[in-house]
Design a protein around this nucleic acid. Structure first.
Lengths: 332, 332
DNA sequence: GATCAATTTGCAACCGGTTGCAAAAATATC
DNA sequence: GATATTTTTGCAACCGGTTGCAAATTGATC
């Protein structure tokens, strides 16, 4: 059916090994036979079968890219950057959509069956168990957007969510807001937990400041809108730190629907700085998360692990910064 | 390193074939040996290597999912549905990001190297050459969101873009708009060409109606905004049919920034009905494209081709419908 | 041109599975 | 219990590659 090594070998009048070697980086072939083989291969349209060779080399160049986050538009940017970054390094992303799954077991099996060279867990809402399960199965794994830890069990690349919480708190204080709140994502997401804890850490020591918090059911527009609508019905805060941009945009919409204005009546600050945050009809003040750096760095780590699978797990954190737009009032 | 067939066979005290057969649907094994093998396999944590078996069976259960559309949020929904749908049928998506590529050749080679069982081209902005190239390489292929043709060369699943253009035209006429325009995506996208042609077809026969058109450089917020900003500087139309929701949202933002109101000063109608279109701060009147049906149907087709690779190419079109929201004035 | 070292080559075994075939075992028939 | 039939089993070859090793070739040196 397809053109194989053997066909090329016969046509070129050499052994199969010779053909294999011409297509193997750094193997010993004379210029003469390499030319003969190239010619035959070109004429037949031969491409080596990556899966067959993986059997002996142990390398598939497949990287499992697993996520559960298919409703937050920032993840389109994330997938774009991951797929391009992997392709640029000659790797192929095998996408696994984990929506709804809570047990890592089946995805581990799946990716083991396909002998992926490594795994990237891309989500802040997936439990650390997932990354750990891959490590236990002895697959190179990086948890992107995972929770910072001083003694990580697997490679973690992301941001310091606690510090982001502090940053948001300081910013809001600086603008003279005193009645504050946090509108988080799902309570089970480590990112939400950490952002809240940093937020509270700064605010709880402040006199005259009150702070409340609540959680949306997901990092999504609808969840943010629903939750904010509820909040607006009883004594809302002056300003909200929302655990994510898409939540903020949902909240923004709820505020508008309630006939209130931003930042006139209520201040909002998000987190991520997704493309949409700078759309003029949204214009969200937010904390920029450097996703390009996070993703590049994640890929570098996973690539490094291909050669040194048992390195010491590492945490890589990237600094965030406030992006000033139009959803907070100026300092008073 | 990993547990193989041989290990299980030895532990169970049977031949390798017996083990292979217990893991092969419909193979002949007695209940007794099956149990022995199961036990040994469980104890060792054995999983068959999907790639090794693909060598003899010729099936990898890998499906190439190729797209170039990583900036239009609707594609996050598209990826979500495709990955879930494929997984539910035991298939694995190998994602290929074609941003910037114009030649199909390299992606064909790539997917051939990985022996994918089939390919889904998911984009309305990719040239039909891509799908055709896969067909020529004798891979089962479906072009989702591709251009309708009465004599298709490959399977096409999508909508009748010409009819959508007509639908938009009739709707705008019905609202009493007389000075109309089309704001399309890239002129090279077949979807834009077709939508425009249906639009013009209806409008050109109307007395007292003027119609103009222009093209944004991409199906993206920024491109829509830029183009609309330009249009607003000289004699804008009363209403615009935008070739896509995300373009509409960009246009909406431009109108707002110019100090004009929608639908007071300018009417807008989009196409897709992406999640975001129903956000309250956008509330876009649009034409609903049934992406769930398109995707399910595409997957069904590709699955069918696994068994019957050389069927007659088929076009499957799904009807669209107007979703009434707040960016068009009521009939006058 | 002979000798030795370095390079290139093909053989054959292997990677982890599947499968046609014939032999062995189990079951059915009388 | 002998024979015929069906089912189960293992052998061995194969899928499309890679690679260690020894033999063959090439090139260097004198």
């Amino acid at each position: 059916m397809n053109v194989t090594l053997k066909d090329v070998a016969e046509r070129a009048g050499v052994s199969r090994s010779a053909v294999s070697r011409t297509f193997t980086e750094g193997a010993s072939v004379s210029e003469k036979t390499r030319r003969k083989v190239q010619k035959a291969a070109d004429e037949l349209g031969y491409r080596p079968n990556a899966l067959a060779s993986s059997l002996t080399t142990g390398r598939t160049k497949l990287i499992g890219l697993i996520s559960n986050n298919f409703h937050n538009p920032i993840f389109l940017e994330v997938f774009d950057l991951f797929t391009r970054g992997l392709q640029d390094r000659g790797l192929r992303p095998l996408l696994v959509n984990l929506s709804g799954e809570t047990e890592p077991e089946s995805s581990v099996q799946l990716l083991r069956q396909y002998s992926v060279d490594g795994v990237i867990v891309a989500s802040s809402t997936l439990s650390p168990d997932f990354a750990r399960a891959f490590r236990d199965a002895r697959m190179p794994v990086v948890h992107s957007f995972g929770r910072f830890s001083a003694s990580p069990e697997v490679h973690i690349v992301g941001i310091d969510n606690v510090e982001c919480g502090r940053m948001a708190a300081r910013t809001l204080l600086g603008r003279g807001y005193r009645k504050l709140a946090f509108l988080g994502g799902p309570e089970s997401a480590t990112s939400t937990q950490d952002r809240l804890s940093g937020y509270l850490e700064v605010l709880s020591s402040q006199p005259d400041v009150t702070v409340t918090h609540s959680f949306a059911s997901a990092y999504s527009f609808d969840a943010g809108r629903v939750e904010m609508t509820k909040l607006l019905m009883t004594d809302p805060a002056e300003a909200y730190f929302c655990g994510d941009d898409v939540l903020s945009i949902g909240a923004l919409s709820a505020v508008g629907s309630a006939g209130l204005s931003v930042p006139g009546d209520i201040g909002l600050i998000g987190l991520n700085d997704m493309e949409m945050a700078r759309w003029e009809n949204i214009n969200l003040t937010t904390i920029h998360q450097p996703i390009r750096q996070i993703i590049d760095s994640s890929i570098d780590l996973v690539v490094r692990m291909l050669d040194e699978p048992y390195g010491y797990p590492e945490t890589r954190l990237f600094p965030c910064r406030i992006i000033e737009r139009g959803t907070l009032r100026q300092a008073v």
